[in-house]
Design a protein around this nucleic acid. Structure first.
Lengths: 205, 205
DNA sequence: ATTACTAAGATTCGAGTAC
DNA sequence: TGTACTCGAATCTTAGTAA
């Protein structure tokens, strides 16, 4: 997709005019100001964008075009229910820290209806299911926003409702921290580590 | 997004190898066979695609790249019900002026079933919800067209039905005037400023 | 500060064609 | 049938600069 259009949509230029200079757009898209200017003129000619003074917006036509592409992508990514198998491993303890923070506890409760047990269960996914882990990210999700204290900031949490050995749970992907590609972090109401043993089956709709 | 990659994903080349010729790809993408061939070689070099004999698939890297773009688009198109927290601040008085104009009063009533109190409530959104403010703009909305007198013209109003501390209200985004990025303007039947105190919770579906 | 023109350089493309 | 090379043309991008 056109990178300028994409950048403008991220800024919310599909609903109202936003004020942004060609240099700023160039910066975001990693191109020269001159090129950004030229391409915006092109997009304007094609009625993808509209400018009024220093303000710019994406037209309905432009929005519709991106939406079409989005719907195609959605078809590709919205795969049906899946199962991942694996086993419990020891975590680094960072999940426990996160789940002890009031912000995350509160938001998990608000969105999923339970106060999370202060700890996360780390499940190492078997080799053949590693690809599926990536695809979880394309499912319906709830994003818990990050927050900041004066000392540090905490990132977004991507949350996916799921079941682990038939128990309702939430798969959490902390956005900032980098995880092993074969490990999934689970949050639930109860202490899963005590309750679960041996083979683990995670189901995502 | 790369159109060849897109075409291959549509064919399911992320699930397993598919058999497709460069001419077929060229046909789908509206380009020459030679160009399709060259670009596939490039994608292969970048480990976006992998070929074995006449079969081709999209690698995890390639799939991941598209997935990232998809997730960005998903944020733009499909953010569900949300809550924004903040507190009441003093407005510039311009909202009051707008809401005293017959045109806007009439159209608010027509679309939302109440005559607005002649004034708007300005809510300063807490830091971590500022991103959500942008995303309100992607929700279903009613646009009240602008109008002009011989002296001046009045811009469009983007209106989003919402609730403020459980009271039905309308979030209004005046298009022309530029607002602080952390302030939301609210219109309701009653004088909200008198009724509400302390912490404010705005809900948008 | 901006935006956007021109000219030149860089990249991408399609036609012809070999294998 | 296929794929993929060369090469000239078309397109896109950047630098310099005017307004």
């Amino acid at each position: 997709m056109d990178e300028i259009l994409f950048a403008l949509l991220k800024k919310g230029a599909h609903v109202g005019y936003i004020r942004i200079s060609t240099s700023q757009i160039a910066e975001i898209c990693g191109m020269s100001q001159q090129n950004a200017s030229r391409r915006i003129i092109e997009l304007e000619k094609g009625e993808i964008l509209k400018r009024v003074g220093k303000d710019i917006k994406v037209t309905d036509l432009g929005f519709g075009m991106v939406k079409e592409e989005y719907l195609e992508l959605k078809k590709i990514f919205e795969i049906k229910k899946m199962q991942l198998k694996g086993k419990i491993i020891e975590g680094a303890g960072q999940g426990k820290y996160y789940m002890s923070l009031e912000h995350y506890k509160k938001n998990i409760e608000k969105n999923f209806g339970f106060v999370p047990y202060p700890g996360t269960l780390n499940v190492k996914i078997r080799k053949e299911d590693i690809g599926k882990r990536e695809r979880i990210l394309t499912k319906d999700l709830i994003i818990i926003k990050g927050f900041a204290t004066k000392n540090r900031s905490f990132g977004e949490l991507f949350c996916y409702p799921a079941r682990i050995n038939k128990i309702n749970c939430v798969i959490v992907f902390p956005l900032r921290t980098h995880h092993e590609k074969d490990v999934i972090e689970i949050v639930a109401k109860e202490n899963l580590r005590k309750k679960l043993k041996g083979k683990i089956i995670i189901e995502v709709d």
